[in-house]
Write a protein that binds this DNA or RNA. Sequence first.
DNA 1: AGCGACACCTAGCACATCTACATATACGGC
DNA 2: GCCGTATATGTAGATGTGCTAGGTGTCGCT
Lengths: 111, 111
Amino acid sequence: MTEEKVELLKGTLDMLILKVVALGPIHGYAIAQRIQQISRDFFRLQQGSLYPALHRLEDRAWLKAEWKSSETGREAKFYALTPKGRKQLEAEVKSWEQLTDAVALILRAAE
Amino acid sequence: MTEEKVELLKGTLDMLILKVVALGPIHGYAIAQRIQQISRDFFRLQQGSLYPALHRLEDRAWLKAEWKSSETGREAKFYALTPKGRKQLEAEVKSWEQLTDAVALILRAAE
DNA sequence: AGCGACACCTAGCACATCTACATATACGGC
DNA sequence: GCCGTATATGTAGATGTGCTAGGTGTCGCT
């Protein structure tokens, strides 16, 4: 069966979204596509994860939303990073690196 | 205040515990100490995370427990990896690496 | 007319981790 | 003999995040 189901680690999604939005204003649907594309199809972001996350990030004032028409000529909500969001992204990247370093220490530990 | 609170990513704890137990039979309390020590004090594993996790791993037959007397002469539950647990550890390490690689792709993505 | 891609959304579940508490023994210092 | 600290295990409840599974509507192609 090898049900190849890739789940995100809880806590990483915010960082990934912030990072993608940091590349330039972008609407929700496209964020999911970008993440999937950049990760070479590894992450497949579900809409039920995506939209609540976006609202969460907006509530925390890390993102700012604005309705504009998308490339295809439709109305879409474009998200941009706030200054606070930029700081948050930096902080999350830093603690992600610390955490992966610490995990690496343990995984490499020998008898 | 810079409340330096390090939280584990949900999903990593099992792997870390399996890895530490793989180094040799060890009791719960010592697992927490080892993880803290090897990670250079980065992870501070709380008892409320540790013991439920151990029971979970035992339920899934990845660990086997046995009461023995500890180094200090007290009764303690010593955990050892089962063959199933060893396979699980390998699988988790592999998917951890894939996941961190995928995250790295996104974090390094430029405009 | 129907279908897939685009674009948004929510309700409810699952589940892991944290905080906080509870229990008990061994050992050293006073 | 008593008290505090370290050792050792455990549970209850809250929190938060991501998932499944549903829903709405538009556009473009055949």
